[in-house]
Computed example of a mutant assay.
Amino acid sequence: MSITQHHLLDTYRARQLGEPVPPAPGAHDWQVVREWRDHRQFRAAVAGRPAHGRIRQALGRWLHMRPHSPR
C-alpha cells in the first residue's frame, strides 16, 4: 500500500468516526527542516562553535577569491 493510499484510508476512517482528518503526507516537511537547522545552530552556539550558514559561506568564498592574472 502506498503512502497516498494509506492517507486516503486514514482520511476515510476519520470521517466515518467523526474524528479530525490527519494531515497530508509531507505537509510539515519544511517546518521539520527549519527546526532541525535551528537546533543545529543552537547546539553549535552552546558548544562555542560559530554557526555555519549561507551568509558565512558566501563571505568565505568572496574573501578567498584570487585576483585574475592578466594574460
Rank of each mutant, 00 (worst) to 15 (best):
I3H: 11
I3A: 11
I3V: 12
T4I: 15
T4L: 13
Q5S: 12
H6G: 12
H6I: 13
L8T: 10
D10M: 12
D10V: 02
T11N: 03
T11I: 08
Y12L: 13
A14Q: 02
L17I: 05
L17F: 09
G18Y: 04
P20Y: 14
P20F: 13
P23M: 07
P23F: 12
P23H: 10
P23V: 01
P25D: 11
P25Q: 14
P25H: 05
P25Y: 09
G26M: 00
A27D: 06
H28T: 14
H28C: 08
H28Q: 13
W30S: 06
W30G: 04
Q31E: 15
Q31A: 15
Q31W: 15
Q31F: 14
V32Y: 12
V33L: 04
R34K: 08
E35P: 05
W36R: 06
R37Y: 00
R37S: 01
R37K: 06
D38V: 01
D38I: 00
R40W: 00
R40Q: 07
Q41W: 05
Q41Y: 07
F42L: 06
A44C: 01
A45I: 04
A47Q: 06
R49Y: 06
R49E: 06
P50L: 00
P50M: 03
A51L: 01
G53P: 01
G53E: 00
I55P: 07
I55V: 13
R56K: 03
R56Y: 02
R56H: 02
A58S: 09
A58G: 05
L59M: 14
G60H: 08
G60A: 06
H64D: 14
M65T: 09
R66Q: 07
P67D: 07
P67M: 04
P67G: 05
P67I: 00
S69F: 04
S69A: 11
P70C: 04
R71W: 00
